[in-house]
Write a protein that binds this DNA or RNA. Structure first.
Lengths: 343, 343
DNA sequence: ATGAAAGCGCTAACAG
DNA sequence: CTGTTAGCGCTTTCAT
């Protein structure tokens, strides 16, 4: 049923080597032989077998991408952009999700190792999964498999990041300029520490005392149900009678959950509380109120990640230096903030 | 650098055949030999090469999934669920996106063919891409590669669907029961014709004349920027001075875009217009107002798709009958609807 | 219970 | 320009 190179060779009355030549376009082949072979390929619907090629080339033309979850617009979009870019370059992307509430035995990395991916892209890895996967991660490094990460890792790999510290500082200063003094923060381990540091720095630089009761940053647990988490954190803030007028959330989903909770408590945004998010997912502009947030140049980041990874893959000799590439981010002012009511 | 079965054999002082036996656990191997080999595997960090296995087994343990876009919560969630289920069964999922505004030359299917996936999952395929890919789709069928589709296709493949007709009928009747008579519809080719038919049937069954000026269903173009599309359609409805109090949208993203537009026009939802969506994505419950919608049992659908596909793959002899499996859907009543103001 | 050897489909020397 | 041939790493008879 499935045709092989032999079938094509027989059909075209040539040797398999010649068929291989026209498929790969490497050596020269006489024009008419070439056409004869192309016709045979067409006629038989022949498609070369990747597995066989892989055995010889030692190249799978496959890249792995580990994300915590896919049902999160940020990762989904990144995966989509990367997938398309890679496809055009002849590579296939395998996306695996590392966050799995049900069981810790998650073979997301080992499967990529078996498949001998040519390169690895790392989003964020859930904490528990990370621990068990450190061994595998190390094997990637040991085997010299090019790797690019979208989050700070303790490993020596190229890292693509938004300038989270500077931009969250900018976001919080936006709130400060509006007149807010009591600004709360909701963060989580998975969104990184820099957004919290940016928040703290903004307060300090503006002579506002950092009040730890305004800060919720689950530094131990990874959170991936961000909206629910944002909702719950606001519930806590309210039930604790915390006094705040501004709120900075370490991503847009948390911010959306937070606004939802606020409104459920009858607190209007932005009239009574101002909220700033982070990432600028599609839903940020669509939500009501439209969310003021920080825009990650996700398209550029995806392009750079792909370019950097392919450079390492295709020039394995060049002793590659692992850079940390930081992208500037932009504050997008929309409708979720206003000056605090003078009380 | 990379270890092969030979390295393990040498390390353990056995032949490669014996190593193969313990890896696959098929033939019996003496206990102590087995342990010796397992130690060697552990020591060398040996991971079997998929490509080589594939050549012999004729099984890639890989499934392809074609979705229009990934940055759409519905497809992202489906992909995530499927990916996890497959991983547990030892399969790897390759997700490719078919919708690409930039170029029509999209090798989403041919790449899956080259990689000789054991099975194919089809979401929806963009119209133009579909045309050019029909050839490839036919090749999958011809080669007897098990295929499951999530949308009605003219091909003879197993299909997993929500009962869109019955449930959109239910959704529109909800609006009718609330007292709405002038109910608009916004649909698109990509969300399928059944949702429109359900809408029409609901009106007819309730003696409401179908007014074509209330219906926007781009039957020719595929739309994937759903929110933008919903926004624009409402703009059109408003600028045409169309008289309506209820609105049924063929998915939640369209509904969200529509509500956003309505509110931008100063029209309150649900006070002045009622809106119903379809799918029940996470954002539906989070949006403001929380969206009344129809819930697809996406988890069950994913599970069934995987089970059906693997059944075909693992029992290739059993002459498989291609069923159309239809799932019941549930109306989720939230805050985006109310009775129309008596005018 | 284990080893030797054939061969999966393909590419890359090496010959001619 | 084109054919012959040796593997790539693995599984699977077939011997032992």
């Amino acid at each position: 049923m499935i045709k092989t190179i032999k079938d094509v060779a027989r059909e075209a009355n040539v040797s398999i080597a010649t068929v291989s030549r026209v498929i790969n376009g490497k050596d020269r082949v006489k024009k008419e032989t070439k056409e004869k072979i192309q016709q045979a390929i067409e006629k038989l619907n022949y498609v070369p077998d990747q597995a066989a090629r892989t055995m010889i080339n030692k190249k799978t033309k496959t890249i792995g991408f580990v994300v915590p979850v896919l049902s999160n617009e940020y990762w989904a979009k990144l995966a989509e952009l990367i997938q398309r870019k890679l496809l055009r370059k002849g590579y296939t992307l395998i996306v695996t999700t590392s966050y799995d509430e049900r069981e810790s035995e998650n073979p997301c990395l080992s499967t990529l190792l078996e498949r001998k991916v040519d390169g690895l892209l790392i989003g964020t890895m859930a904490n528990d999964v990370q621990a068990e996967n450190t061994k595998y991660l190390q094997m990637f490094i040991d085997q010299g498999i090019p790797t690019v990460s979208f989050s700070s890792l303790s490993l020596n790999v190229t890292t693509i990041l938004g300038d989270a510290l500077a931009s969250s500082l900018k976001a919080v200063e936006h709130l400060i300029q509006l007149g807010h003094k009591r600004i709360a923060f909701i963060g989580s381990l998975s969104t990184g520490i820099d957004r919290e540091l940016g928040y703290r720095n903004a307060l300090m630089l503006n002579q506002i005392t950092v009040d730890e009761s305004l800060i919720i940053s689950s530094r131990n647990d990874h959170v991936y149900h961000f909206t629910k988490y944002g909702y719950q954190c606001v519930q806590k803030l309210i039930s604790d009678n915390t006094d705040f007028t501004g709120l900075f959330c370490s991503n847009d989903l948390i911010a959306i959950g937070a606004i939802k909770a606020l409104e459920d408590f009858g607190i209007s945004v932005p009239a009574e509380k101002s909220v700033v998010g982070f990432d600028d997912i599609d839903m940020a502009g669509l939500y009501r109120p439209a969310l003021t947030t920080v825009k990650q140049p996700i398209e550029d980041m995806a392009a750079t990640a792909v370019a950097t990874l392919l450079e390492q893959i295709e020039h394995p000799n060049g002793s590659y230096v692992h850079k940390k590439i930081s992208f500037p981010m932009e504050l997008v002012v929309r409708q979720s903030c206003s000056s605090p009511k003078s009380s």
